[in-house]
Design a protein around this nucleic acid. Structure first.
Lengths: 212, 212
DNA sequence: TAAAATTTTTGAACACTGTTTAAAATTTTA
DNA sequence: TAAAATTTTAAACAGTGTTCAAAAATTTTA
């Protein structure tokens, strides 16, 4: 029946409204500083209303997950212009860093916070599809490199995992402020970015040196 | 006067008692699940009493910081038995992983959480001494490797930063559960450890391949 | 159109959280 | 022992996520 469909659409509309409010508040003031009551206030509903559309706060978190991954994949779109595999891999690393620094809270949501991930496991579905796709892009790029003679003697999956770990480590140490504490460069932001770049370039140098 | 000294000792005693209670609760049930009221209950004082000994919760966190670093440095003591620099570096990586996995909450406290770090910056003193010392051990090991011909063409500081980032990335992706989600090995714990080890060994392989 | 049934929304409460403050209990000093 | 100083606490504040019965709004039925 068309009636129930229309109703469903309306329900979906409010659901999306909640998500949009949550997203704007999260990116505006961070996760810790955003409450269910804040979101409710923004959409001008009572806090309890939200629970008719989302199971709990983690459910909202997880819904933002998907959008976050889409944003990450958007950042990767520049890679289509880079035909050389190793150059593409290098550009991918830079894009990943860019994404992590310019969307710190979203990055945290995707790769640091445990709650939304637990929600995936709890709520039946193994829906981390977009995340897996992002990893697949890395894996394929690594394998494309290998076909051109790079990374001889390396298992593509293990190497991809390592590359991801390295990028993740760099990004989280950077955004959490731990990099700044260990480095002598404690003041200016430019120095930190530079430091991070130097570490990244060292990694690229490592990968490059693996040639036969 | 000896009286005030005794008083100070008593005060210090209670301060340490608070810290011990906090530590046991943190490691027992995690950070998020431990409140000031829990700690107060454990030492059989009122919650407000704690604020006579610690400025706030982050102050307690930061005090555990120091102990955490001492524990990490203890894990590094096995390195004294490894004279060959590169073998020492390899052992250091393994020790770091061991520490991160067997002390997940403490690791989080030291290298993931932002609040205790902000406390360091806020409360004047630049006291991340023990942390810097841990990094110095890495730096010195890297430089010792270089003196034996390893890592030619690399800046020791940049490379140390990279190594730290890689290890940190591996450990956090592992403990947060993100590694398990991307990998096909979603069930058994042994597989995850194995996967992590493979990524680690790939990294070692990379470093080894840097020989002249 | 009026009544019944269903859905949507909400106020109020529950059990928490970190933190502050003024008052009470204790200890030290004179 | 009385006064002063210190330590400890009860109570409150403003907030959190979440639940649930009741109210309001909407839809369906007669």
């Amino acid at each position: 029946m068309g009636v129930t469909e229309r109703k469903e659409r309306h329900k979906e509309g409010l659901k999306k409204e909640i998500l949009a409010a949550a997203k704007s508040l999260f990116t505006e003031r961070g996760f810790e500083a955003t409450s269910i009551r804040n979101i409710a206030e923004k959409i001008e509903y009572s806090p309890a209303a939200i629970y008719s559309y989302y199971k709990d706060k983690n459910d909202i978190m997880y819904s933002l997950h998907q959008e976050g991954f889409k944003l990450l994949l958007n950042h990767f779109q520049v890679l289509n212009n880079v035909s050389h595999p190793f150059e593409r891999l290098k550009a991918m690393g830079r894009a990943y860093i860019q994404f992590a620094i310019h969307n710190q809270d979203i990055y945290k949501l995707l790769f640091v916070m445990e709650e939304p991930l637990a929600h995936v496991a709890a709520c039946g579905g193994e829906n981390w599809d977009e995340g897996d796709r992002a990893f697949d892009i890395l894996l394929q790029t690594v394998e494309a490199c290998q076909q051109q003679g790079y990374f001889k003697g390396c298992d593509s999956k293990n190497l991809s995992l390592l590359i991801w770990s390295t990028m993740h480590g760099l990004c989280t140490l950077r955004t959490s402020g731990h990099l700044g504490h260990v480095a002598a460069a404690k003041d200016s932001q430019t120095d930190l970015d530079q430091l991070m770049n130097l570490a990244y370039e060292t990694f690229i140098y490592l990968l490059e040196s693996l040639d036969p």
